[in-house]
């Protein structure tokens, strides 16, 4: 029973963080049709920025809750600055290219951003434990657990709700759906497609950074932080269906829980299981579990 609860909670925590990161990736793919490898770098940047800010705040002996402010500020700053620069300077000129070639270009951006992190933040790891320590631990079913991980789940719920609400209940959301459906017609109708792209990319980048920023207090933030995340969020997005937000949610839950089960039951299979499911879904339903139906092209 205790093991079951542990697996469930571990799985949900893991799924929450995967969801926050992957939803950014899937939104960008859905709208801009870009498979953004650099998303892993946004995640790492978010983590570094937040860890740096939290450590700084703590050194200045500000109140511990300031750490939470740091997390969100860091994510927003990374999303805005990096997102804007990369979309405007590089990706803007690539939309006509082949999807896979754009993905490769984002791999180049990923490599660059990975090293700029080291140049800016140095090579030593950061430990920004303060926000997690502040919230303490509570017993759940006889097991002591970090409260912080529950706030992570809450954050994932908020992100999921905001995305759903933003896309279905606001004018902006409708604009985005129109652009997804047909870029050229939207342009002809007078929609500022280039602005929509920019905003969506910044939001996507910000969500990637938020994932990293919120996870930073639970881990040691060290070089190579974004390398594993990017393939894991690929797996999540592919399982759910590239471009689908509910898909990202289901994908994240599947990957999170499966991985938690593997970690506790068969540690050797931890990574294997994630990518086996990814391959399996691609084989059985290439468009993913939740992909919208496509019109025939021939």
């Amino acid at each position: 029973m205790q093991l079951l609860i542990t697996i469930l909670l571990d799985g949900l925590t893991y799924a929450s963080y995967l969801f926050i990161v992957s939803v950014g990736l899937t939104i960008v793919f859905g709208v801009l049709k870009i498979l953004n490898v650099a998303h892993g770098a946004f995640y790492a940047w978010g983590a570094y920025a937040s860890a740096y800010a939290i450590t700084y705040a703590s050194d200045m002996e500000y109140a511990d809750w300031i750490g939470f402010v740091c997390i969100f500020l860091a994510a927003a700053a990374v999303g805005l600055v990096l997102g804007m620069i990369i979309e405007r300077v590089i990706l803007r000129h690539m939309y006509a290219q082949d999807e896979v070639l754009i993905a490769l270009a984002t791999f180049g951006i990923f490599l660059i951003l990975e090293d700029v992190i080291l140049l800016v933040f140095g090579v030593n790891p950061y430990f920004a434990y303060q926000p997690m320590a502040l919230l303490g631990r509570i017993p759940v079913g006889g097991i002591s657990r970090d409260v912080y991980s529950f706030t992570l789940m809450a954050l994932a719920c908020i992100v999921a709700f905001s995305c759903w609400w933003g896309l279905t209940r606001t004018k902006w959301g409708k604009l985005i759906s129109v652009v997804i459906y047909d870029r050229e017609i939207s342009q002809a109708m007078g929609i500022n497609v280039s602005m929509v792209y920019l905003i969506v990319f910044v939001i996507g980048a910000g969500l990637g950074a938020l994932g990293g920023a919120y996870v930073a207090p639970t881990l040691s933030v060290a070089p190579g932080f974004g390398i594993d995340v990017i393939v894991l969020s690929f797996a999540v997005v592919v399982i759910g269906g590239m471009g689908s937000i509910p898909g990202a949610l289901i994908g994240a839950l599947m990957v999170g829980i499966l991985r938690a089960v593997a970690v506790h039951k068969m540690p050797e299979l931890e990574l294997f299981v994630v990518f086996a499911v990814m391959a399996g879904v691609l084989i059985i339903r290439p468009e993913g579990l939740f992909a919208p139906a496509k019109a025939r092209t021939i």
């Binding site: 490769l104 490599l111 660059i112 090293d115």
Partner: peptide
Amino acid sequence: HAWQLIVGGTLLAII
């Protein structure tokens, strides 16, 4: 600490 930067930059330049 910046070799990936050079490699990545080369990749972008080529593309």
